[in-house]
Design a protein around this nucleic acid. Structure first.
Lengths: 201, 201
DNA sequence: TCTATTACAAACCAACCAGTATGTACGTTA
DNA sequence: TAACGTACATACTGGTTGGTTTGTAATAGA
């Protein structure tokens, strides 16, 4: 039975709100008023639980964005026996499920990185940590494939993982600006072509 | 002989200033005071030549950013007989010439796209136009290669060009956040691996 | 049940910032 | 050289925004 005042859910509401608003508007342009309205709480509640807007952003990255990314783009393929098949399948599903809305707002990790990483070291370190874990997870995935014979032995797993992440994010970013599913499709095909080069002969 | 008051150079100074400041800070966070200080002019001069900050941003894209991108990443390879060799060479040079400073600020086109394209249609259209011209230029380059036999006949030139642009920007963006030349190097290797698949057998 | 502490609510504030209004010096032209 | 238009310079303003302060209701512990 939820209490009328529950600090846990209040914090969660605020974290979800700052995630959604800054996904659209960017973090610095995300108005506190809009975040509070979305969360359905007042400024007093925010400053009770967080030091300020920046602190709210930090915790959002660690507690919301991180899972949003890794659940979507890593955990869903992490137990696949053939990494290449799994990644191709993931990319196809992602392309099919994209809506005009999602296309226009892009990837929250990429958005935040481009906006904040040159301007606030706290943001950069937290975002970089997500990228690192993502890349590292893909690296392990590819290494498992190498052991099982589904990935070529002579490829550097971390290097390949890095390129996959980079081109993935670049694709979403380009499709966002061009607002075109054709661009997204072309990029997915390009990624597939690359992934095929990682298969054993 | 430069006149003491030269509207042309004043406009150019303002356009260069907003380009540089917003390259670091982002456009919306770029303080007009900082732009004016960098340009060495006052607010009166700005509002004499431009309707406002947004208008200044628009003209900057069309008159500064466009050339900055296309000169760097398209025109320098446009007359190559072997597009694949040329692109590989370009990527290697770009990697060698990168400084910590440049790494940290990233690509001005990518930065602006991620920041503005979901929030201001005027920006999005202008930025999208640059991407289109870039992609289209690479498409023509690849088609020329196909005619000369340096690029496979069965690849879709526009699709390949799109993936090249996307992964290029994604690489710079990822390296920016991770602040790592190793990431940049890994991405360049990945792009080379992809480009090699475009060669005839 | 009394009390202390947590969890908010709401009014307030100071700083910032794009944009404007007004004033002035320069330069061109007749 | 007089006069008029262009090219600025400077002081000001209105709105927005992150942050603070003060007050109050709910909850937990003794």
């Amino acid at each position: 039975m939820p209490r009328r005042r529950d600090s846990t859910t209040t914090k969660q509401r605020l974290l979800q709100a700052v995630f959604r608003v800054s996904h659209r508007e960017g973090f610095r342009s995300a108005d506190l008023q809009a975040i509070l309205a979305r969360a359905g709480v007042t400024k007093g509640a925010l400053y009770h639980h967080f030091r300020g807007k920046t602190d709210l952003g930090y915790e959002m990255i660690d507690q919301v964005l991180r899972d949003w990314i890794l659940d979507r783009w890593l955990h869903s393929v992490q137990k696949a026996s053939d990494p290449i098949d799994a990644l191709i399948e993931l990319a196809r599903k992602a392309e099919q499920e994209v809506t005009p809305e999602r296309l226009a707002v892009g990837c929250p990790l990429n958005n935040l990185s481009q906006e904040m990483s040159a301007v606030d070291e706290g943001f950069r370190l937290r975002l970089s940590s997500i990228y690192s874990d993502w890349r590292d997870g893909l690296k392990v995935l590819l290494e498992n494939g190498q052991q099982r014979g589904t990935v070529r032995e002579d490829v550097d797993a971390l290097s390949a993982a890095t390129f996959i992440v980079a081109s993935w994010e670049g694709s979403i970013g380009l499709a966002k600006c061009e607002r075109s599913t054709d661009v997204l499709s072309a990029c997915r095909q390009g990624l597939e072509r690359y992934l095929e080069t990682l298969r054993p002969l």
